[in-house]
Design a protein around this nucleic acid. Structure first.
Lengths: 243, 243
DNA sequence: TAGTGGTCTAGACCACCCG
DNA sequence: GGGTGGTCTAGACCACTAG
């Protein structure tokens, strides 16, 4: 382990190639990577590293804390620091907002609002929304287009108690999800994504000539313990893909 | 802002309800949440917070650094600290390894290896793998079952240079992706997920009676700048969903 | 030049675990 | 009781930005 310094007064002047704590992190990761410190083994204590590397404890501690945060190490107070098991088989897929996804590809996003109204809640929708049958909800039904071609159908229910001004918005200019995110904070989501076949309804609004495979996203949005919105989004499968 | 202490000798003995830096984080987030510090506005400098809150700079700094890491703040050296724009419309989907996903549901995972061999690379597969036509590659073709029912078809190519022992593994007991993750470190992935219709091939191996919508995942795995593996996974759409 | 954030130290007190 | 990690401080030097 070579510690890079600039040979000035202090032990590590700030314009060293990398900060000291970064060098410690790299050092620890290299020891793990080349097998010196195998999975689940205990690594030297902070005190030991302080002695061996000639670096102050706060700096060592920061390096180890950040590596713990990154999932490289596990630390147990009063016991020691251990090499964590690398996270197995977790690959994350990121779903951007539809308008952003389209614009990021350099294409034109348009939203066509088919309706946007208050309506009484049907029995089948009441339960998942956590409201009662007949309660008034806001609903919007929007087709999103990419360079003029229909890409996604959005059928959204909104809780009027939490977003009383929902009906006043112009969702041909502003995305529903953006409006919700800007209006409330600390939102959480719960969703499922299925591969489905287009139905007569989706084929009509997405202008599909035949039956094609689609992504159907069902998403609930919560603010604290209250449901803000429930949305069904159907993506034309031959024109959309997740990465 | 009330700083909780225990009234002992030091300013903040360790068993205070929350560490000081956590209290600072909560304080900052509350000022943002209730609108005192709007989006993009500059918040007080570290020095100011040190004076106003009577807390040392290292502690203030840690709180602000962690909030920056979490995307709540933006910091610019020499300029100041600003409230970050909340991340818009990014929802992440987590894909677990197939065996883990099945076992997490309390069901039985089985893998049926149809073949597992070395073969010359075809022209169409050579380009995406970054190798040349006719180069030898390892290939495995596996059906994964959930409680006996076929759930996913995995067709994988592997670079023999990086995983020479790939053919010696028993993939009815160990998942291919787990073997790869355990054998190499610092892997990165690149993938696309499409909604597709089952083909005669997938219908046969997934024992589908009719044409159904499926998820098709195409994933490349890199170790550094070398391709380790390329896999196509087809999930029976009526039996699988992403969350 | 003044003010900002970025890093580092030496020392301190603490809670926790285990023999 | 001895070792571990968790937190906090006071002060210092640095790099960067702007007026």
């Amino acid at each position: 382990m070579i510690i890079e310094t600039t040979g000035k007064t202090g032990i590590n002047p700030g314009h060293s190639p990398k900060p000291l704590y970064e060098q410690v992190k790299i050092y620890v990761k290299s020891r793990i990577k080349n097998g010196d410190w195998p999975c689940h083994s205990q690594i030297p204590s902070e005190h030991t590293l302080v002695r061996e590397m000639g670096i102050s404890r706060m700096t060592i501690h920061r390096a180890l804390r950040e590596l713990t945060q990154e999932g490289v190490l596990d630390r147990i107070q009063g016991v020691g620091t251990f090499v964590a098991k690398p996270p197995q088989g977790r690959i994350t897929v990121e779903m951007k907002d539809i308008d952003q996804a389209i614009r990021d590809e350099g294409r034109l996003h348009q939203a066509q609002v088919h309706f946007h109204q208050a309506e009484p809640l049907s029995a089948e929708d009441a339960l998942p929304l956590g409201l009662h049958e007949g309660d008034e909800v806001f609903r919007s039904y929007i087709v999103h287009r990419e360079n003029g071609h229909p890409l996604m159908l959005e059928d959204r229910f909104v809780n009027p108690a939490l977003l009383p001004d929902y009906l006043k918005q112009d969702f041909s200019r502003l995305t529903t999800s953006r409006y919700i995110q800007d209006s409330l904070s600390m939102l959480s989501h719960e969703q499922t994504i299925r591969a489905v076949l287009s139905t007569p309804e989706t084929s009509h609004f997405l202008e599909l000539a035949s039956t094609v495979p689609c992504f159907q996203v069902n998403r609930k949005t919560w603010s604290g313990n209250k449901i803000v919105s429930m949305v069904r989004m159907v993506y034309s499968g031959d024109r959309y893909q997740l990465t």
